[in-house]
Simulated assay, not measured.
Amino acid sequence: DPGDYLIGEKIDINGDGTPLRYLDKPSKDGASKDSWYSGIGGVDVHYSSGPANHFFYLLSEGSGAKVIDGVSYDSPTADGLPVTGIGRAKALQIWYRALTTKWTSTTNYSGARTGTLAAAGELYGTTSAEYAAVQDAWAGVGVGTRPGGDTGTSYESTTPVAIPDNGPAITSDITVAGRSGNAPSNLRVAVNITHTWRGDLVIDLVGPSGTSYRLKNFSSSDSGDDVDETYTVNASAEPANGTWKLKVQDQAAQDKGTLNSWKVTFP
Rank of each mutant, 00 (worst) to 15 (best):
S212I: 04
G144M: 05
A89T: 14
T158P: 01
D255A: 14
L123A: 11
G144R: 03
D204C: 04
P184T: 08
V161H: 06
L58P: 00
L117Y: 05
G178Y: 12
P2K: 12
G85R: 00
P184Q: 10
N186D: 15
P76G: 04
L20D: 14
V134I: 07
I94M: 04
T100I: 09
A119W: 03
R146Q: 11
P26S: 05
G125N: 09
V143A: 05
A162R: 10
A31D: 02
K216H: 08
D136M: 05
E130D: 11
P2W: 11
D24R: 00
L123H: 11
V191C: 06
L20M: 13
I163M: 07
D29E: 11
I94L: 05
L20P: 00
D255T: 13
W103R: 07
V189E: 03
T194G: 14
G115P: 06
K256M: 10
G17E: 12
I11M: 10
D4F: 04
V206L: 08
G140L: 04
W95M: 12
D79F: 02
I203T: 10
L99W: 04
A98M: 12
P208I: 08
S220I: 11
T151D: 15
D24I: 00
T126I: 11
T159P: 05
R97T: 13
Q93E: 15
P51Y: 00
T196H: 11
D255E: 14
G178F: 12
S157T: 14
W95A: 13
Y5G: 03
Y231W: 13
I163Q: 03
F266K: 02
P239A: 14
L92H: 02
A240L: 12
D165F: 09
W262V: 04
P2D: 12
D29P: 04
V189T: 09
T151A: 15
Y37A: 02
D34L: 01
N53C: 08
S219N: 15
L99H: 06
Y109P: 01
P239Q: 12
S154I: 08
L215V: 07
V45C: 10
G148W: 05
T145L: 13
R198Y: 07
D255S: 13
I203W: 02
A133E: 02
E9K: 15
G80R: 06
D226Y: 05
Y57W: 09
W197Y: 15
V264G: 03
S157Y: 03
A133P: 01
G80D: 06
T18A: 11
D136F: 03
V83M: 02
V264P: 03
S72Q: 13
K263I: 06
K90F: 01
E130F: 00
A235V: 07
G87T: 07
L259Q: 05
S49V: 09
W138Y: 15
V141G: 01
K102P: 02
Q135M: 14
V206P: 04
T126F: 11
K66Q: 14
V191L: 08
R113N: 09
G199W: 05
